[in-house]
Design a protein around this nucleic acid. Structure first.
Length: 266
DNA sequence: AACAAAGCCAACCGCATTCGA
DNA sequence: GTCGAATGCGGTTGGCTTTGT
């Protein structure tokens, strides 16, 4: 499971850490802290590079580290955060106390990447199911939602805040299911849309699938996951903060701007 | 039982960024 | 402003373990 032990040309040890080395590093940092990673190994009596010591501490020896299997809630949170941050493992790790970026990265590559791909496929097939519905059902929806028929942009606020700006209900569904903004007036502050109204409209069985897909895209599928996310974000950003969502929405078209926007909201 | 393939994860490597002289 | 050292980050590797044949 670990790389074989060896020495490089400078006599620096490589490969798996022994219990003795762990104890030396732990004891040293406990007493003096990690004031300088480059000099630390010398003072701690370790034949390791500073880099290696730092990695060992950050990924394994830190006292607040959790060891063991990931919970479903943690998996859900990683999936959710990865959809926002991409491969920004340190950013994701900062939202999961006790887990290192390396651990999360491994978790993603070995388990969650496949699950995320499967989820996307499910969402796409739901979208196609909607697109294949008869015209009269689409007209029925339009007749109930005059704002949509008139081509006005709309967005969601409230407990399930998200603010795609779309001109038709189908377009709106498409945006939700793909996680994309529809474009248009993305720089405008969102108008409000009653989520309850949406539920009243979408009473047909096929539409129930959509609403659950939308929910699962916006949040992980279980209540505990919701709590975790809420805890994770509560310090930095309120999910139902309309301004925050508007800012994110207006930046989300440009991934490079997204991160700076995220920092800005903080 | 023996072997191969896939899964898993600790650790390494190289690059980017930050910091201090 | 420049340069080198230190630090941090993300991608990749290597080898042990588990599973399948």
């Amino acid at each position: 499971m670990v790389k074989t032990l060896g020495l490089d040309k400078n006599g620096i040890r490589k490969g798996a850490w022994s219990d003795e080395e762990d104890e030396k590093l732990r004891a040293y940092i406990h007493r003096y802290g990690h004031w300088n990673w480059s000099l630390l190994p010398k003072f701690a009596g370790l034949s390791r590079s500073g880099k290696s010591c730092r990695l060992r501490w950050v990924n394994y020896l830190r006292p607040d580290m959790k060891h063991g299997n990931f919970t479903k809630e943690e998996d859900d949170l990683i999936l959710h955060l990865h959809s926002m941050f991409g491969n920004k493992w340190s950013a994701i790790a900062s939202k999961l106390p006790g887990r290192s970026d390396n651990e999360i990265k491994n978790r993603w590559n070995t388990h969650l990447k496949k699950r995320a791909k499967d989820d996307r496929n499910v969402q796409q097939s739901n979208y196609h199911a909607v697109a294949m519905q008869p015209k009269d059902q689409a007209n029925q929806i339009k007749s109930i939602v005059p704002e949509v028929q008139n081509g006005e942009k709309m967005s969601l606020t409230g407990t399930s805040s998200v603010s795609p700006s779309c001109s038709t209900l189908t377009e709106l569904s498409s945006c939700w299911l793909s996680g994309a903004d529809c474009g248009g007036s993305s720089n405008a502050a969102p108008q409000t849309f009653d989520y309850q109204l949406l539920e009243d409209i979408w009473t047909e069985p096929f539409l129930e699938d959509i609403t659950s897909s939308v929910d699962s895209m916006l949040f992980p599928s279980n209540a505990v996951g919701h709590d975790l996310i809420a805890q994770s974000f509560s310090k930095d950003m309120m999910l139902d903060d309309e301004f925050s969502w508007w800012m994110l929405n207006s930046c989300v078209e440009d991934n490079n701007e997204f991160m700076s926007c995220w920092d800005c909201i903080h």
